[in-house]
């Protein structure tokens, strides 16, 4: 029963990883940009939530009302002012610029908040749980998983059913021809980054409620998100959720064997899948 419990907890943890991954997946899908600063932006969101919830005396879950638009606006500005200048055939500029951004965010947080671990206090909901027979489920992990499913369903709907999604797909297909349709590429990219960071804000707040975080916590969040994307198959949003779940389960099972193996087990499963199914477990049909 312990093992089944570990698998279920791991699957729920996978919801959080899918949230880390969804923003990464979105901007890769629209503009082929891999944002190395993604993990640091998740952590930055957690700090923004910390400051707003402490400053205004809000529950961090309520602080989302502020954090999500703030991060989205930041994403739009970041894309328009900096990242759009790096977009082109050469992949080096966006890579190096987002890498630089990652170092800047990390050290700026270090200056502003020190290296001490912080945590978001969400109150009784953190420890609330429901029992299903012998299995006990935390309310927060279930909530996070449900939000992840909702976010992915929402992104899927947006992509395939709305004018914005059409603009994203057209721009992703052929940037110059999309421009001929009156779509301003710079603006479309800005919107994609805004949306990505809105999801990132959710991920950051949930991360901060679940565990303590510090300015250096971004790197591993980027890596978890990236692993979920690759395990699930590039360009497949539901696959990303599957990838997150597999990663989460690998980690909780690893931790069950030896607490030191938690993260390592996740990486090894990722490398194993890369070795046997390099295009991920759920590759996109048309890709």
């Amino acid at each position: 029963m312990d093992w089944i419990n570990a698998i279920i907890q791991g699957a729920l943890l996978g919801g959080l990883y899918a949230l880390f991954a969804a923003g990464l997946s979105l901007i890769f899908g629209v503009m082929r940009l891999v944002n190395i600063a993604h993990g640091d932006l998740i952590v930055l969101s957690a700090y923004v939530a910390l400051t707003t919830s402490v400053g205004l005396g809000l529950n961090p879950l309520l602080a989302l009302v502020i954090v999500v638009p703030v991060m989205a606006a930041f994403g739009y500005a970041l894309q328009r002012l900096i990242l759009n200048r790096t977009m082109g055939d050469d992949l080096l500029p966006p890579l190096l610029v987002t890498f630089g951004l990652s170092v800047i965010i990390q050290n700026a947080l270090l200056m502003g908040y020190s290296a001490d671990p912080q945590k978001l206090q969400a109150g009784p909901i953190e420890t609330a749980s429901v029992s299903l027979g012998p299995i006990t489920l935390g309310v927060m992990p279930v909530l996070v998983f449900a939000v992840a499913v909702a976010v992915i369903a929402g992104l899927q709907w947006m992509f395939y059913r709305t004018a914005l999604g059409r603009a994203f797909r057209a721009t992703s297909d052929r940037q110059d021809i999309a421009q001929l349709m009156g779509l301003n590429r710079a603006h479309v990219f800005g919107l994609a980054m805004a949306l990505s960071l809105a999801v990132t804000a959710l991920a950051g707040v949930f991360l901060g409620i679940r565990t303590s975080f510090d300015p250096a916590a971004g790197a591993s969040r980027l890596i978890f998100g990236f692993e979920a994307v690759i395990i699930g198959g590039l360009g497949n949003l539901w696959g990303t959720l599957g990838g997150g779940v597999i990663l989460g389960i690998a980690q909780t099972l690893g931790a069950k064997i030896n607490p030191g193996y938690q993260i390592l087990a996740g990486h090894l499963v990722f490398l194993l899948i890369l070795a046997i199914r390099p295009r991920g477990l759920f590759p996109r049909m048309d890709g």
Binding site: I223, L264, H267, L274
Partner: peptide, 27 residues
């Protein structure tokens, strides 16, 4: 192994490998 990843994904793949080394030596 990591040559299966392209471009920027290759970059993050190299980072995963470094993390694996770190976690291994920590054991």
């Amino acid at each position: 192994l990591i040559f299966r990843l392209r471009g920027a994904y290759f970059a993050i793949g190299t980072w995963v490998v470094a993390e694996v080394f770190l976690l291994t030596f920590a054991q």
